[in-house]
Computed example of a mutant assay.
Amino acid sequence: MGVNYKLKSLRIKNNITEKEIAYMLHMSISAYSRKEIGSRNFTIGEAGKLARFFNTTIEDIFL
Rank of each mutant, 00 (worst) to 15 (best):
M1T: 07
M1D: 05
G2L: 14
V3N: 08
Y5F: 05
K8M: 07
K8G: 00
K8E: 03
K8A: 02
S9L: 14
S9E: 13
L10R: 03
R11M: 13
I12Q: 08
I12P: 00
K13V: 01
N14D: 09
N15F: 04
I16M: 08
I16H: 02
T17P: 02
E18R: 13
E18T: 09
K19Q: 13
K19S: 12
E20G: 02
E20K: 08
E20H: 06
I21F: 03
I21E: 01
M24V: 05
M27W: 11
M27T: 07
S28N: 11
S28Q: 08
S28L: 08
I29N: 11
I29A: 03
S30F: 07
S30R: 14
K35H: 04
E36L: 03
E36S: 00
G38C: 09
G38Q: 12
S39H: 12
S39G: 01
N41S: 09
N41I: 01
F42R: 04
F42L: 07
T43V: 09
T43I: 09
I44T: 14
G45F: 10
G45A: 10
G45L: 09
A47W: 04
G48P: 01
G48M: 15
A51C: 13
A51W: 07
T56Y: 12
T57S: 15
E59I: 02
E59P: 02
I61M: 15
I61C: 10
F62H: 06
F62L: 11
